[in-house]
């Protein structure tokens, strides 16, 4: 989970439904953060640029204003599938799963709801800092297990 300033807030090794990509989370270094950010940022930029319904397109690589452009929701390789959701407030939720998993957009929304319930409503949590909240961890963990 990534916030509006693109700082990593929280991550999970979602064992039950990932098979091949566990290593990504384990060896997650500063460079990997950068890579992930670059990947998502460019993909968003490209998808907006490709949009045939919109005539006013910014230049590639220029950050977009809220409400501008469009975005992708997942991509798939032969070994994994990455699902992505960005809320208008800039919270990004990324799930890496087995390539055969179906549409996860509803699940991402559900996780966003969990985030609201357990993180933003937690008075001890300072917005923008890494999430260290047991209740959130366990509830996401439980939820992710039901998806498997």
């Amino acid at each position: 989970m990534v916030d509006r300033k693109n700082a990593i807030l929280w991550r999970i090794r979602d064992q039950p439904i990932t098979i091949s990509t566990d290593w990504i989370w384990e060896q997650w270094s500063y460079d990997d953060h950068k890579l992930m950010f670059g990947l998502l940022f460019s993909l968003k930029s490209f998808t907006a640029k490709m949009d045939p319904t919109n005539v006013e397109k910014g230049n590639l690589g220029v950050p977009q204003l809220p409400g501008q452009g469009c975005s992708f929701h997942s991509f798939q390789t032969n070994t994994y599938k990455l699902s992505f959701m960005e809320s208008p407030s800039g919270i990004k939720i990324i799930l890496v799963t087995h390539p055969k998993t179906g549409d996860l957009r509803e699940s991402l929304k559900h996780i966003y709801n969990l985030y609201v319930e357990y993180v933003t409503k937690n008075p001890l949590y300072t917005p923008g800092t890494p999430i260290r909240c047991e209740l959130f961890n366990t509830s996401v963990d439980q939820y992710v297990r039901t998806l498997a």
Binding site: P66, G67, S87, P88, S89, I91, K109, Y112, N113, Y115, V116, T120, K121, P127
Partner: peptide
């Protein structure tokens, strides 16, 4: 407000506003 916005977005299902 900075916390409320997420609850608002999650519960209302409002997507991005055009203007």
């Amino acid at each position: 407000g900075i916390r409320l916005i997420d609850e608002f977005l999650a519960k209302s299902g409002v997507s991005r506003c055009v203007d």
